[in-house]
Design a protein around this nucleic acid. Structure first.
Lengths: 168, 168
DNA sequence: CTTGGAATGTCAACAAGGCTGACTTAAAAC
DNA sequence: GTTTTAAGTCAGCCTTGTTGACATTCCAAG
């Protein structure tokens, strides 16, 4: 986080030319397309879209999460989320349970069917990510994550860091 | 399938647990939001959207490019691109010139007004990228680009590599 | 010279998924 | 007892993607 970590690397930050930065921007653009390509294919087969993917992903990640929490993670309006959530509940992929402590809240979890979709989507996306990591090598993976985290807005970084990470 | 999240997969050369891969996926998601946040604000002020940004960016990057070339870079239909292009031409940000050699083609360039918008957008985006790079450090930047390139689909990687790079 | 195909543009219709605004219900908080 | 909060709903709008059909222009091959 400390941006003056004083990496004693000869030219330090001098290699940040506009052209370098542009290539980084374009890399993000093209890579994001690859990043979503595989899930998009699976989603289309089943009549869902990216919005459904995002909802399913974060419900899987934080089972029992409330609608409000999901809203702030996804950064969309409740009307927008509700449209997606309604179809997922109707189709039996997501279960909505009234809260026990606070009965205004609805706690969202995936059903078996929902977990099956989540699995298909995340398998595809993890395979893509794994291949990219392997091609780039271990040190690259470190740097990749560091730059991405640094690129997030504060709100999003907090959400990101709050997601449980069983691996480190 | 293949849920080995309980096993840290130590036999692989990389520490690629499912959890690690998930964090990478989530980092992409949240970072892309940050990546587009600043341009989105500028675009909204001026009544444009991301589609306009993409068109302006790649016309700036390859002045005189044809519509067909732009289509294959952007990966949308000509009807979709045309709608965006038409408003940009009407608003005097883009100029469309009939080709001299092949008069069916239209060669697209930015006007002064178009360059002004491009500048505003890319300044914002480069600042974000530069800050992220500085926070992450020089080694991280290398890895960042490597993973992104490895994540692209073949078509997109070719487009990416074909873009002129004055800096390396 | 004619014709086929390529490049472009345009019209119409539609869908996903964002948005705002207004309003209801139920429950918690004060 | 009033206000605030969480959630849901309805209606309508916008951007940006999609198909399909069709016109125009022009290059190039027969």
């Amino acid at each position: 986080m400390a941006d003056q970590s004083a990496r004693p690397s000869s030219e330090s930050l001098l290699f940040l030319t506009d052209e370098q930065l542009r290539k980084g921007i374009e890399a993000m653009f093209f890579a994001y397309r690859g990043f979503t390509a595989d899930p998009d294919r699976i989603l289309e087969e089943r009549g869902y879209g990216r919005a459904h993917h995002r909802a399913v992903h974060f419900i899987h990640r934080s089972p029992g999460t409330t609608v409000n929490n999901l809203l702030s993670i996804l950064g969309v309006t409740k009307q927008s989320l509700n449209r997606v959530l309604r179809t997922l509940i109707e189709d039996g992929l997501v279960e909505s349970k009234v809260g026990t402590k606070d009965k205004r809240e609805r706690h969202l979890t995936l059903t078996d069917k929902g977990r099956e979709l989540e699995r298909a989507l995340s398998d595809a996306q993890r395979n893509r990510m794994r291949d990219a990591y392997r091609k780039a090598g271990p040190e690259a993976v470190q740097g990749f994550r560091q730059v991405l985290v640094a690129m997030m807005d504060g709100d999003m970084r907090r959400h990101y860091l709050a997601l449980k990470d069983a691996s480190q």
